[in-house]
Write a protein that binds this DNA or RNA. Sequence first.
DNA 1: TCCGCTTTGTTTCACATGCAACGAAATTTC
DNA 2: GAAATTTCGTTGCATGTGAAACAAAGCGGA
Lengths: 142, 142
Amino acid sequence: MQLDSFFPYRLAVASEAFSRKLTEVYQREFGLSREEWRLLFLLANAKSLTSLELSQRTTLDKVQVSRAAQRLDDKGLITRAISEEDRRIRVYHCTPEGHRRFEQLLPQVDACAQGMLNSMSAEDRAALDRGVTALLKAASET
Amino acid sequence: MQLDSFFPYRLAVASEAFSRKLTEVYQREFGLSREEWRLLFLLANAKSLTSLELSQRTTLDKVQVSRAAQRLDDKGLITRAISEEDRRIRVYHCTPEGHRRFEQLLPQVDACAQGMLNSMSAEDRAALDRGVTALLKAASET
DNA sequence: TCCGCTTTGTTTCACATGCAACGAAATTTC
DNA sequence: GAAATTTCGTTGCATGTGAAACAAAGCGGA
């Protein structure tokens, strides 16, 4: 058995290489980490979200959400209000500046991703999409 | 645009979930990290390798190789000899104990991977394999 | 109400990681 | 052949991360 023909290894390497290219974009442009990028992504597309919602929709745990949100707050991209109903709960909002940066960043990140995907054949792209969808289901169920 | 329909995100989540399941196996069984597991994998299937070879064949940089190899040495799974020809170079070998553990571990890791893959349809599995192969090529070239 | 229990978010601590500097060995250049 | 340069592996440092402890707020039963 060779490592580079071992499927789990090939999946990890492919995914990391792909992810790394995208990370470079939002890292270089605005100094955002992957966690920060994900939170900003969600908040830019929603009026307001709580930690629990952010956590569930990003596969980040509460500590990661807390820290990434703190950094985004420091950068002025989001706000972290305390809920009126339950004062333990944080309610996150995207600031106008956060929106502005997200609108600027998404096309660049997407272009980078599409650039790599477009170097593949249409059939390969379709296969990848189908395979990832199935894997997502399999890994979450098992 | 929704995050969970953004392809790069779905790929990352799927890959991480898959990888996490496998990590649990060699983490739990022998307390190996992913880097250690990869090095052991290579060394168990080769007579001897240098740092450069290990690095190239695992996508780890020299620091990661150095540290992971040190830990494997501490655990008695590999040896780190100094090359006769060039005394800067390390030559790594797998010990009998390292071989033994690898032979014990690989079937378990593989079974875990196959378990997830087998919950997918044959067509989905084929699509995934094809897609990952194409992505590996695309990401490494771009 | 009071006391215990749960939930939520943050902090602490120990450890992993990435980057740059470093020392030793080899190679090149003059 | 000595000095400068390059290569190889390791180490130090500053930062990031995960697990558990923690404080604050809410909940719930006596």
